[in-house]
Design a protein around this nucleic acid. Structure first.
Length: 882
RNA sequence: GGGCAGUUAGCUCAGCCGGAAGAGCAUUUCCCUUACAAGGAAGAGGUCGCAGGUUCAAGUCCUGCACUGCCCACCA
């Protein structure tokens, strides 16, 4: 074995093997419990980033652990067509050729997108393989393949016929750059510096006026009212009066509406129902006219010719200038407010009136809320439950249509005449083009031009990957559905998770998953979001090639506390890589020493204190690790395994084992090697969900590569029970060893120099423990001989190491620096005195004695005695240093 | 405006069933000891954000405040 773990070779070898032997393929098996995860399908655009790495690695860890526990695990892979995002990417490519999608036309353009997907779509899947993901590749799905399309159509038609999907002209969020409507949740708000313009609105036939404050003066041309709060004493007498709008002299009313905040600006607001959500609501309540003045291209319409055709920004400049000129502009102040932007291209959203398809979600939301309240869907961490419910409760109807070409085209057909003009017949939702119109018997139809929001097909994903829509009663769906857990970041909790629950409750009458595991969002080492503009994006592929996949996985798992954002840095990966190397070398030591010895791990025998101790420590670790895995606290499993393996197993147990390994008695050697191998193999099982490659490699070497069966196909070993006593006893030895080492280190005594030790026994019952393990103390503390005695005075020129049970004198003729030794001991007395003071204070407290539990009192009394004894002994020794 | 997190060693974070402050990285000293220098041994470093309260005992429970971050909201 090489001295340094060569991850490149190992990773390539094992993933290939796993795939070729279909280790991750699963079929329904009624004798075993299923455990299912459906991948959050990454968009086919581009490649996977660190966030994907985190999300998928966490899923893989859970799946692999459950598999070891004996579940029939299935993890379904797939990708998302990614609607707007993908269309934008392809449009950009076209732009480089100097073309637009309109040059190609719908059909040709779509061909182009499909072609692009064929070329690049699989990059992502290959990357998932590199992460080591144990996905069942035979089930790879795509949100726009045939089966998934059937699911989309089926659900749409069902909802349409139920009257939940309807078409209407409403105020929607419009992205002028993507030229499509967006749902409320696809709008992201950002604070932006702007101005607040105060404008005089004169009352008709009067010298009086009302001042309104606005951030959008250009929409003045679309105003159809001024609104004030009905309780605002300043304005009560003006409600119902008429105002003449500046610049265009349109007469509008002053209306009262509770929505108006008295304290904002002047307490009076201009109402532009066609281009503002609140204004639109006010207009509904007060039955105001709606005048559209901005079109889908973001330019002014239905306005005086001097403004006609300007974009909103130009119009704003002109209008402010003109208002100023006629003396209507009272003042302009700096103002910061939040502005809605497109989540795909960051263009400012233009609210405008548009004919769109909507899904009425009222009933679905109610059911989803019930499911969450009843705990049928449970959140990890649970703090997400409340925001999730609040969101569902305040949901407006979902705008599901998009004016783009790439996506599931809305399966609604309109009856048309020969010239293509729409007849006044009922529109039909149908899988295929209808044959005959039920109203007029006409035979000509056109399909709706719009496509569905990409999240519509995503919402069906957990069902559609099992071919719901094509065959609703298939075995897979019956067996694997509902899935066990959904793993995702909180950024798409509403966008996606909530909708899957809604759709699943509607179509399957069941939840799509039992648990929702919400992890944090990745940040850089300074806590900043990773973004291309900051240049702090860490590419997982680069990390893998530098540190190895297991290191990447370990590092991410280590910081993946549920719900908390995680910061990653080079040091993190370095630590992870070092840990892999530690595992490698510990294994290497054991493997090198077991050459020529067969069947090591069967039937282990505990013969010495260290054996009982390590078994006990391991049993404790295992129970913590299991609990951590099961509650999605992957970070704690990592910590527990790391600490156990490095500190307990390597630093203590392996060091202890060396004496027996070097023993000439073959049975002794075999016994300890069996212990070592047993614990190692068991540890490999527990670390394998996190570091599958190195675990598999060592597992195979340990199993002598014959009759190969992979680690992931093994079942967790039974863990033997230990005893708490062994931990106490081992502590005695560790105390002695550490104390002597500290002394040596502080006195600068080279490990090459072996020392004689005199053990003055303070606690009789501890003597046996030491006697039985004398060799280990000698070995690890570099002691040549140990002599036991009682009531001994400090020999000349010796240094003192003191534990709870022993006073250890180390004769240091020629090595001891009396001054140094004195200072060292004085420091120890200092610590002990602090301890005595602290405990005495407690014991002197009547209430403490009265109210604290006896065990606690006993405990600190023991500590007090130890500290006092220590002081006494050290003082006794100090006398000899005078 | 509402809600949710966080605030512990120089940095990143554990600890939160209340009973002697922990890890990794960085740092200091010693050591290339036959598993590992990507390592070993030892050390230094913390009035656990602030102020109250409950308690014999508070990093840990309660209240308030401050700062940081996130989410939600119709900031016109």
């Amino acid at each position: 074995m090489e001295k340094i773990y060569n991850f490149k070779e190992v990773e390539a070898k094992w993933y290939k093997y796993w795939i070729e032997n279909k280790i991750f393929s699963t079929k329904p098996d009624k004798n075993r419990k299923p455990f299912t995860i459906v991948i959050p399908p990454p968009n086919v655009t581009g490649s996977l980033h660190m966030g994907h790495a985190l999300d998928n690695i966490l899923q893989d860890i859970i799946i692999r652990f459950k598999k070891l526990q004996g579940y029939n695990t299935l993890w379904v892979p797939g990708t998302d067509h990614g609607g707007i995002a993908t269309q934008n990417v392809v449009e950009k490519l076209l732009k480089k050729e100097g073309k637009t999608k309109y040059d190609l036309g719908r059909e040709k353009f779509l061909e182009k997108v499909w072609q692009w997907r064929a070329e690049t779509g699989d990059i992502i899947l290959e990357q998932l393989k590199k992460f080591g993901c144990s996905l069942d590749w035979d089930r790879t799905a795509f949100t726009m393949d045939e089966s998934r399309s059937k699911a989309v159509k089926k659900s749409f038609i069902y909802l349409f016929n139920k009257g939940l999907i309807y078409r209407g002209k409403r105020l929607v969020n419009w992205c002028p750059s993507c030229s499509t409507a967006l749902s409320d949740i696809e709008v992201e708000y950002e604070n932006e510096k702007s101005s607040l313009w105060h404008i005089k609105y004169p009352l008709k036939d009067s010298k009086e006026y009302v001042i309104v404050a606005t951030t959008r003066p250009e929409t003045i041309l679309g105003d159809t009212a001024v609104a004030v709060n009905p309780d605002d004493a300043r304005y009560t007498k003006l409600v119902g009066k008429t105002i003449t709008l500046p610049l265009i002299n349109r007469e509008i009313k002053i209306v009262a509406d509770y929505m108006v905040d008295k304290s904002f600006g002047t307490g009076a607001i201009k109402v532009t129902p066609a281009h503002d959500t609140i204004d639109n609501d006010i207009a509904k309540r007060s039955r105001l006219d709606i005048i559209e003045i901005i079109n889908a291209g973001g330019t002014m319409i239905n306005v005086p010719s001097k403004y006609q055709g300007l974009n909103t920004e130009e119009a704003r400049k002109e209008i402010v200038k003109d208002l100023d000129a006629i003396g209507s502009l009272v003042k302009t102040e700096d103002y910061t407010h939040s502005v809605g932007k497109c989540y795909r291209c960051s263009t400012k959203i233009e609210p405008l009136m548009s004919e769109q398809w909507f899904l009425n979600v009222t009933e679905m939301s109610k059911k989803a809320v019930e499911a969450a309240n009843d705990g049928i869907t449970s959140f990890h961490p649970k703090s997400w439950k409340k925001p999730y419910i609040v969101w569902l409760e305040n949901l407006r109807d979902w705008c599901i249509s998009r004016q783009i070409w790439w996506g599931h085209r809305i399966p609604v057909y309109y009856c048309v005449d020969e010239k293509g003009n729409r007849n006044n017949c009922k529109s039909i939702a149908s899988f295929d083009k209808p044959v005959e119109c039920s109203c007029c018997k006409g035979k000509n139809f056109v399909q709706d031009e719009d496509v569905l929001d990409t999240w519509f097909s995503s919402a069906l994903w957990p069902m559609s990957v099992f071919n719901w829509g094509e065959d609703d009663n298939n075995e897979d769906l019956k067996y694997f559905y509902p899935t066990s857990v959904l793993v995702t970041g909180h950024d798409i909790l509403y966008l996606w998770v909530a909708r899957m629950v809604q759709f699943s409750l509607e179509f399957m009458k069941n939840i799509p998953f039992n648990d929702v595991f919400i992890h944090g969002i990745l940040k850089d080492k300074h806590g900043r979001k990773m973004s291309k503009s900051l240049g702090n994006v860490v590419n997982p592929m680069v990390i893998m090639s530098q540190y190895g996949t297991d290191a990447l996985r370990f590092a991410l798992a280590q910081v993946a506390a549920p719900g908390r954002d995680l910061q990653i840095s080079d040091e993190l990966f370095l630590t992870a890589r070092n840990f892999a190397n530690k595992i490698w070398n510990a294994s290497r030591f054991i493997i090198m020493n077991s050459e020529g010895i067969d069947k090591l791990d069967n039937d282990i025998q505990l013969s010495e204190l260290a054996d009982y101790w390590i078994i006990t420590e391991f049993a404790n670790t295992v129970s913590k690790v299991k609990a951590a895995y099961e509650s999605y606290n992957i970070d704690s499993s990592v910590r527990e395994i790391y600490d156990f393996f490095w500190t307990k197993y390597c630093s203590w147990y392996i060091e202890f084992s060396k004496i027996r390994i070097l023993s000439t008695n073959l049975n002794t050697k075999k016994q300890v090697l069996s212990m070592l191998v047993h614990i190692l193999k068991s540890t490999l099982q527990f670390i394998s969900p996190i570091m599958p490659f190195i675990a598999e490699e060592i597992w195979q070497i340990l199993n002598k590569a014959s009759n190969i069966k992979t680690l992931s196909e093994s079942s967790l070993f039974e863990v033997k029970n230990g005893n708490a006593e062994s931990i106490e006893k081992m502590k005695v030895l560790q105390d002695i060893i550490v104390n002597i080492r500290t002394l040596r280190s502080e006195m600068n005594i080279s490990p090459a120099i072996k020392l004689e030790a005199l053990f003055n026994v303070l606690e009789d019952n501890k003597e046996t423990i030491v006697k039985e393990n004398e060799n280990y103390i000698k070995q690890l503390a570099k002691i040549s001989t140990i002599q036991f005695c009682k009531n001994m005075k400090r020999p000349k020129n010796s240094a003192l190491a003191i534990t709870g049970s022993f006073e250890i004198f180390l004769p240091l003729e020629g090595l001891i620096d009396t001054k140094k030794e004195k200072a060292r001991l004085m420091k120890k007395i200092g610590f002990a005195k602090q301890e005595v003071d602290r405990i005495t204070l407690n014991l002197d407290n009547e209430n403490f004695i009265k109210k604290a539990p006896d065990t606690e009192i006993e405990k600190i009394k023991t500590r007090l005695n130890e500290a006092k004894l220590k002081i006494e002994k050290i003082n006794g020794t100090l006398k000899f240093l005078e």
